[in-house]
Design a protein around this nucleic acid. Sequence first.
DNA 1: TCTCCTTTGAAGCAA
DNA 2: TTGCTTCAAAGGAGA
Length: 480
Amino acid sequence: MPQLNGGGGDDLGANDEMISFKDEGEQEEKISENLSAERDLADVKSSLVNESETNQNSSSDSEAERRPPPRSETFRDKTRESLEEAAKRQDGGLFKSPPYPGYPFIMIPDLTSPYLPNGSLSPTARTYLQMKWPLLDVNHGSLQSRQALKDARSPSPAHIVGPFCLEFPGQSDLSLHQFQLSNKVPVVQHPHHVHPLTPLITYSNEHFTPGNPPPHLQGDVDPKTGIPRPPQHPDISPYYPLSPGSVGQLPHPLGWLVPQQGQPVYPITTGGFRHPYPTALTVNASMQSFLSSRFPHHMVPPHHSLHQTGIPHPAIVTPNVKQESSHSDIGLNSSTILYTLHRKHQDSKKEDEKKKQPHIKKPLNAFMLYMKEMRAKVVAECTLKESAAINQILGRRWHALTREEQAKYYELARKERQLHMQLYPGWSARDNYAGNQQGKKKKRKRDKQPGEGNDLSAPKKCRARFGLDQQNNWCGPCSL
DNA sequence: TCTCCTTTGAAGCAA
DNA sequence: TTGCTTCAAAGGAGA
């Protein structure tokens, strides 16, 4: 996948961010085009699930050439070419391929230090942020963007037929993203729709619904959405409610109770980690200022995870635990029963405490960021509600994105990881593994795909196990 | 109520 | 180094 810094030295950048294709390719699009409007949603879903099989049956002639060569150095070029071809073919020349080979990254000189010594964003970084995240709109409020969004509301795209969504990855994706990038996409508000930058703002908002805003937030209510806007600094994105100077001066904004706005990215907590949360000690001044400017000050270290209101932060995963009334144990006269209940209560209390321990979620990767942004759009365009089907569509659209568009999300993901590292220096992904997480479900092991674990994969295992320099230890089939 | 599904990418871990 | 597994989001479906 695209190398974000081109040098490979960035530990935050993905080293293998290669666009991979499973791929359904052209045949899939043709099949989709032939779908009649009478087909019901189930058929669409079914076609999504079974498309690969259908493609295999209908495209045997091109199967070999469409299958990406294994680890070929030309793979990247071929995939890019296929993308461009598809885009050109479907877009009527609207799509213009990048005039240069390789990955089209636009990088600021030092992404890791986009801040001036005083903690503010450097002009370069500011320009970069505006360029990369148009909706961030560091100089203007979001009202203009919202107006643009509203004005740009248009009839359903042509590829949407009837109450369901026909998927034409190339055209729909390109057009959608062109709109998206120009902030003119007619986003239909969905209960779970989040701002494209939401991944940088929050990881979860489902627990919080719009409610009566606190008085200090009611003075600035979005006339379009009716959602109160938190106080804004002219230089700071409206999605980040507090300016550095206002940190600690304003009453608690409760911005994270308002969906889409003012939601913090990562929970600040001292519990549930292998390491005590040392953010206050590890976040430097620039990051502190950055965090203060981007997040409500309650999210800036060293605050604890619980909000002043006692409501846990949405980004902190606290598994639902049935409230066990401690009062139920009171008033029983039997000492035996009391003892038993006490023991039982103690045990359950321990379990609850373990379960209640919040955990820091993994930073979202590029695709997850893309999904968060585009899900609502897909849901709006289609009548699909099942996430599995939606994710299939999103997966295909992801592959249909241009490299520039994907780069945007890779960059966002890289920043996510960077911020995550700054916020949680001691955090490790394994902290969230089922083995370490009490009460965390253990995912079922994936079923072996046909061909997995057979002799065909054995050579890789031996090579992985013993290495190329110990081929004498390889088993027979591997040595062949 | 809980788990699965479904996607991609990052990270951890065993071999 | 390789390959497998888990987890991140999302919400309907099914057990």
